[in-house]
Design a protein around this nucleic acid. Sequence first.
RNA 1: GGCGCGUUGGUGUAACUGGUUAACACGCCGCCCUCUCAAGGCGGAGAGCACGGGUUCGAGUCCCGUACGCGCUACCA
Length: 495
Amino acid sequence: MSNVRVRFAPSPTGYLHVGGARTALFNWLFARKHKGTFILRIEDTDLERSSEEMVRGILEGLEWLGLDYDEGPFFQSDYVEKHRAAVRRMLENGHAYKCFCPKEERSDEEVKKIVAEAARWSKRLNPCRDLAPEEVAAREERGEPYVVRLRVPERGKTEFEDAVYGHMERDCREIEDLVLLRSDGHPLYNLSVVVDDIEMGITHVIRGQDHLSNTHKQILIYQALGQPVPQFAHLPLILAPNKAKLSKRKHGEVVSVTTYRDAGFVPDAFVNFLALLGWAPEGTDQEIFTREELIERFSLEGIHKSNAIFNFNESDPRNWTDPKALWMNAEYIRTMPMERLTPLVKAELQRSGLWRDEYETERKAWFEQAVSLIRERARTLTNFTTHGRPYFVDDFSYEFDEAAVKKNLRKEPALKELLPQLADAFASLTEFTRDRAEALLRGFAEEKGVKAGLLINATRTALTGQAVGPGLFDLVAAIGKDRTVARLKHAAQLV
RNA sequence: GGCGCGUUGGUGUAACUGGUUAACACGCCGCCCUCUCAAGGCGGAGAGCACGGGUUCGAGUCCCGUACGCGCUACCA
């Protein structure tokens, strides 16, 4: 185990956001690659917003993605005393000061701008910055409320090497004397992250680019605390198609990873997709990577600087999420090893009540045959229920698509006679195999002077209720003799 | 407003330290295969690299400016 220690530090919002998921993934990949430690820390200092339920959504998302953490979950709220202690140290060494200025009211945007402007110069203008110790003591004595602010140096600059964005520097004059501790003693974000990251020995801070400018403030806090500054790597953001920030409120369920779980995504596929959003491996066109390959190839240098768009389409149900994610999921379902796929299919069938234990015992071979037929056309795991129902039920409780019935059954009245005859012919087959079934059907068609296609399409609809699906003879073999016969006779009534 | 970051086809990305008609994947269109739908194979449309200047024999690659987007500018995180 190397000394690399990284963390994913989401706030408990009740769900894991795709952007957060990618941040978690990159931290995880980096940790695994360097045999380091991946830590989960819940940033729950905004106490009103956090509850166990809110945390659960995050944990569920990480679990589904398979991003296991080595330490945690830690809760930032458990470290409040450490945050305060850090502030006391900064107060003692003069890197922070108590500010008695009244709290600004900033309701509308206009006021906010003015205040922002003022804030930047506040350390120069702030009357509290250089208050005499006796006065501070006296006002405190009187019970005047105060916040603790960082005493940002008047000159100089902060700088760091970002693994993604390169050399970053900022003039200290551009940095306001930020508040560390609220007047109620509540620690604020920039303080908390730094103290926690120090406490947890974080070596690499890998997080969203929205923290790029905060980093300068945080560096100042590290310095005020006399602690070494970790490495930083800022990730480009994942944006909505209109380039706006992704938000659950505005964009709905597409932003939550549990949506993908529930929609039948293969975790590896979603991880693969996420990995390629803002990152590309060096020197290859390859797009499909196992986790092991991702870990091996991952490097901070391959991270893109510009934001990526998550290309979902709210008005197109077929492309409800990024088409490439959908494609990748289908690709995984189609090509992944059967032994990896079957547990996922099992879970799906259990969910929909179609599962039978014999599928992993005496009917295992048959089951895998059916799965391999269905997987060819599946986009999501839920398709094993929708497309798969005809394979897994004995009765006629699969849905008959009206258009299919019309096109493949009702269009040719002769089928009313032909289907039962075909059924009887199938019934007489002693060896009910793919090839025998095909020979029989084609011979039957010739004998009756009809095109094989007519019977093939009719049979497909009889067996599955659909107009589309696998090659008919594979299907017939998978459905088996008895159900084929019964379904053909049943379908004759629909003609 | 200030400061910072970014900008290659619809989307995700590639293009060694500047050097042939800007590559790959998804999506889209067409053809082939075929009992349907997929998958697969083949082919096509789609960017001249945000825009404008400059440096250079030569720039997506370097420099400057502009525009646009995003972030920070809270006693939010």
